[in-house]
Nucleic acid binder design. Structure first.
Length: 437
RNA sequence: GGAGAGGUGCCGGAGUGGUUGAUCGGAGCGGUCUUGAAAACCGCAGGGCCUUCGCGCCCCGUGGGUUCGAAUCCCACCCUCUCCGCCA
């Protein structure tokens, strides 16, 4: 994942500005430029010598075929020339490789510049773009007088649908067990999301592996950026996926799309595994922050000129799901220092959870422009026979289940402890109300 | 897990040390012909690097090695296929 060298050379100021806006070190830009110049100098010199060596080698062959003695003086001279060039080439190549490694390292630490319309600043600068639905207060007015909405963990316990203790027993804390209607609710949500995406939004459904190899983890930047967030199966050198983004984006690694192939739009369900290292003690109750959760992810490959519009569209698709579930939410345009290293523009969708009176992040929709594509070498041909160019990649949750479940339980609970099932899920669940056990 | 075969360009498929970065076929693109299309014929046609654009350099699964010279020889690893074993 990196900015392009060509762009770095042509617009160093823009890249520098982008790094500063994201709170990163802009000096790396100059470091990279310097390394790039050195690398090109070394490469040029080495290439010249290689041409010499190739010529000498060819002369050996020509001389022998022309009747010269294979061990005669003429042939020996050509051989010597080739060997001499070879020695210098080896030295230059070694140096070039070292410089290139340094350059790569510098490039990797230069962030993707944010789009011009992204607010500059930290979380305070995030912009609420829109809000939808009624923000229910914790205190409600029921048929038998005032009542207090409960947090989802209390609702879930009364219904007997989430078993955190037994999850901790069989796997560990942060691995919830969904039971009965709770399990069916998971299945219903996954089916609802995928159904809308495939039948109405034109996505192709993908059911990818839940583990990836090191090359794939590197492709989307999990290695080295977020390595300690992933569960690793060391014996087989595999990583449990933290999101479907990883396997699905890597589907087209090192590929070239033909002119009429784009856009390619995938919707994929996977369980997601996250170690949540460094988040100990945060959101420990309920299912707001867990090590395993379920998510349907949207992954888009777009032509560069279409990616800006595609982000708005994709965000709209995620919002549509929340509306149909009748959950109040807001859309945040994330500011430069709160959006992440690799995103060019990002919207977060936060659902309102009246039981805990908090906004819960249930989707994050990002445009990476060509930043991810460069690292994974995902390209497209603008026209038949034309030179390949990098595609733009985007992805967004549509949606993440655990927090949606929390919001449903808190939004649709009733004073008697029952929970109304949102309309789109009723057919699968076979009921319109969940009753306390 | 055991045995065998193989990994070459968009696909198929040649090539086992010296203009082979790669024969050939198909698909593709451009053209001729045609009212149009098909067919036929001609031509173009892999990816990347370098502000030296050059009959320049690198790439035939990946990484090393041998050699003046490697797609071709050697070693390791990865992957695919077939058979056997095991198994949801």
């Amino acid at each position: 994942m990196s900015v392009g060298l060509q762009r770095l050379r042509e617009e160093p100021d823009l890249i520098r500005r982008g790094a500063l806006d994201k709170g990163e070190d802009a000096a790396l830009v100059d470091r990279a430029l310097e390394l790039d110049a050195r690398r090109r100098r070394l490469l040029g010199e080495a290439d010249g010598l290689k041409a010499e060596r190739n010529r000498a080698s060819k002369q050996v062959g020509d001389a022998i075929r022309g009747g010269a003695a294979p061990d005669g003086p003429r042939v020996a001279a050509f051989r010597a020339a080739s060997v001499a060039a070879g020695e210098r080439i080896a030295a230059l190549d070694a140096e070039a490789a070292a410089v290139e490694a340094e350059l790569e390292d510098a490039l990797l630490r230069i962030p993707n510049p944010a789009d011009p319309d992204v607010p500059v600043g930290d979380a305070d600068a995030n912009v609420v773009v829109r809000t939808w639905g009624d923000l229910l207060p914790r205190a409600g007015a029921g048929p038998d007088g005032p009542w207090e909405r409960k947090p989802h963990w209390d609702v879930a316990e009364a219904l007997g649908i989430i078993d955190l203790e037994r999850g901790a027993k069989v796997a560990g804390s942060g691995f919830p067990v969904y039971r009965g209607a709770g399990a069916a609710l998971q299945r219903a949500l996954i089916d609802f999301f995928l159904g809308v995406h495939t039948r109405e939004n034109g996505f192709t459904e993908i059911w990818p592996p839940a583990v990836v190899n090191a090359a794939s983890a590197r492709g989307t930047g999990q290695i080295p950026d977020k390595e300690d967030q992933m569960y690793v199966i060391t014996r087989d050198e595999l990583y449990l996926v933290p999101t479907a983004e990883v396997p699905v984006t890597n589907l087209h690694r090192d590929e070239i799309f033909e002119p009429d192939a784009l856009p390619v739009r995938y919707a994929a369900y996977t369980p997601c595994f996250r170690r949540e290292a460094g988040a100990a003690g945060k959101d420990t109750r309920g299912i707001l922050r867990v090590h395993q959760f379920d998510k349907v992810e949207m992954v888009l490959f777009e032509r560069p000129e279409a990616s800006g519009e595609a982000l708005e569209w994709m965000t709209g698709r995620a919002e549509d799901l929340l509306r149909r579930l009748g959950l109040a939410y807001r859309v945040l345009l994330m500011a430069t220092r709160d959006m992440g290293f690799v995103q060019a523009k990002k919207y977060d969708l936060e659902v309102w959870a009246p039981g805990v009176e908090r906004w819960l992040e249930v989707s994050s929709c990002s445009n990476f422009r060509d930043y991810q594509a460069r690292r994974m070498a995902i390209r497209y041909r603008p026209a038949p026979g034309a030179k390949p160019e990098l595609v733009h990649t985007l992805n967004g949750s549509g949606l993440a289940l655990a927090r949606v479940v929390a919001a449903i339980l808190e939004t649709y609970q009733r004073p008697d402890g029952s929970v109304v099932v949102p309309e789109p899920l009723r057919a699968t669940l076979g009921t319109d109300t969940l009753l306390p056990s």
